[in-house]
């Protein structure tokens, strides 16, 4: 990997953190909208967002309400405040499109954001296995029964 100056990599990291936070926010809005029956738009400073999503692998599906969700985040650069907007469209419980738009005030920010979009697109999204004809599934290897029983035992011990 080519060496990068600290400020470059810090700015790159900030952009990545910003976009990740926006995805979290957009997902949160989708969940919120499911309950509240509305579609929302939110503007937040991702640097102050402490939400994290740690999805548990499980057979259950989270229900999302159809709609388009967007979130805009701002971050500080030496050249001033920059913003990125992430837009997700959800239909039938599946993210059908996702898009990242950027607005830059400085040439440098434009370059970094273009670089980000080039390197981090596409974000993949899931489709329901019931809607697709598949012969097989590949992912992490199915676990032996003993392993799953051990995990269950530890979980119940933790609750006791």
């Amino acid at each position: 990997m080519p060496p990068e100056s600290t400020s470059n990599s810090r700015q790159k990291t900030m952009v990545i953190v910003g976009i990740l936070a926006l995805i979290v926010i957009a997902t949160a809005i989708a969940l919120y909208a499911k309950n509240k029956d509305e579609v929302g738009t939110v503007t937040e400073n991702p640097a102050q967002t402490s939400t994290t999503t740690e999805s548990q692998a499980s057979g259950s599906t989270v229900e999302y309400k159809d709609g388009t969700y967007s979130a805009t985040g701002n971050y500080q650069t030496p050249g001033g405040t920059e913003s990125i907007t992430v837009k997700l469209t959800v239909a039938n419980n599946v993210v059908t499109t996702s898009d990242v738009t950027t607005s830059q005030t400085s040439q440098e920010a434009a370059e970094y954001q273009a670089q980000f979009k080039a390197n981090y697109s596409p974000f993949v999204v899931g489709k329901d296995i019931n809607d697709i004809t598949l012969s097989r599934i590949s992912g992490s290897s199915l676990t032996p029964r003993g392993f799953n029983e051990a995990v269950d035992a530890i979980k119940s011990q933790a609750q006791a």
């Binding site: 989270v62 599946v94 899931g126 489709k127 598949l134």
Partner: peptide, 14 residues
Amino acid sequence: NVGLEHPDNLNQVI
């Protein structure tokens, strides 16, 4: 046709 399992959601493929 091999579905590539979504690591967060076993009911989905990417």
